[in-house]
Design a protein around this nucleic acid. Structure first.
Lengths: 202, 202
DNA sequence: TCTTGATTTGACCATCTGGTCAAACTCACG
DNA sequence: CGTGAGTTTGACCAGATGGTCAAATCAAGA
């Protein structure tokens, strides 16, 4: 294992390659379904070499998840209490949908973990995520109190945005099996936009 | 392997026990994450005994999925072109949400499969499911043409119902981590009901 | 260039896992 | 009962998998 001095050029490169490869493999097969050999091959390293940079498969997975959590929650973080309510929410849904389109591996990585009971990120859920959502739910409630948007259960409103947007990344195969050649996001964007306009209109 | 005569009492009992156990294990850990030993233990059988009833792990999984597919699609099947549009759709969403509540293992079984690219049910998706959805999308389009419900992309409308309802089963841990003690379905039902009323109102 | 720490690897190991098999046991029915 | 089909299991196997280690190779600063 590399000493904990400043990382060398090679360390940076290889660590990045491993995490990139791990994202591919874990998101496609889940934790249990991924093998260290697979990740090593994808990263262009031998297995022992990979294990020189990360002490175990679990450690790679953990590093990956915690490294991506911030990215994943950024759009919700950016929901601004001082912005225009309708615009803020619509822009949040658009960013989330865009992330489904551009970062589907990340979405599936979390989906894989969640659908199996999130054994490795349960803490992050009930700590960081919960706190963030509590905070933003209050923002939503504030807007409802001011009559700026329709009164709805704020938590379920947030869940609905997650469900609608992540569905396109997580269940991509199903969506494409049904739509055929049509680009899912082409239709999804205006649909979701319309949905929230109608739903939130006071 | 039992001969293909009429199944004996014991065969019925054990096959059922195996499928029940397999549903528990596969839905919680995915195909790769589940082990034959685990399923056997859960079914109260030894591993060789289990493999006397099903030739392989894969066979159990297949039997389970194809046996449940019908159940899973029944609510959409029942969407009646001759019924009242708004009532038909709302009752479909209610049934789907109820299934998330009462059959979460089934939902997660499919979710696990889909999120990993559905390697074992790709055919069912692009054949049976696609055909069913095509058919029901036409029903929806008909209602839109008649001005009975708002004009929307019919496929994305269906996706939205799947996403919103299955979210509560598939990502149960996340939902509960955020809601704490509150029953997710308590709030979800009126939320989803309101959502589709507002969305579909012509 | 030389040295020293960083990097890489072939060989190896223990465990897990899906699956097999022959032998033993049980059950239903004549 | 007795018997043959149906059922169960302990022992076993081959391959996959996560992980280790000593030895070899490489890179960069003195």
């Amino acid at each position: 294992m590399p000493k904990d001095r400043a990382p060398t050029r090679i360390q940076k490169k290889n660590r990045a390659a491993i995490l990139e490869a791990a994202l591919n493999v874990f998101s496609a097969h889940g934790f249990r379904g991924a093998t260290v050999d697979q990740i090593a091959a994808e990263a262009g390293l031998s297995k022992p070499n990979l294990l020189y940079y990360f002490p175990s498969k679990e450690a790679i997975h953990t590093a990956l998840l915690s490294g991506l959590l911030e990215t994943w929650l950024a759009p919700l973080h950016d929901l601004d209490a001082d912005g225009d309510p309708m615009e803020e929410i619509l822009s949040y849904t658009r960013r989330k949908l865009q992330m489904s389109r551009e970062l589907p591996r990340e979405s599936r990585l979390f989906a894989n973990e969640l659908v199996q009971g999130a054994p490795r990120i349960h803490d992050a859920l009930s700590q960081d995520l919960r706190q963030l959502v509590d905070e933003k739910a209050q923002v939503l409630t504030g807007w409802m109190d001011q009559g700026k948007i329709a009164r709805l259960h704020p938590y379920h409103l947030i869940f609905s945005i997650w469900a609608l947007t992540q569905h396109y990344a997580d269940f991509d195969v199903q969506v494409r099996a049904i739509l055929g050649d049509e680009d899912p996001f082409e239709g999804a964007e205006p649909f979701i936009d319309t949905l929230y306009r109608k739903l939130l209109e006071p």
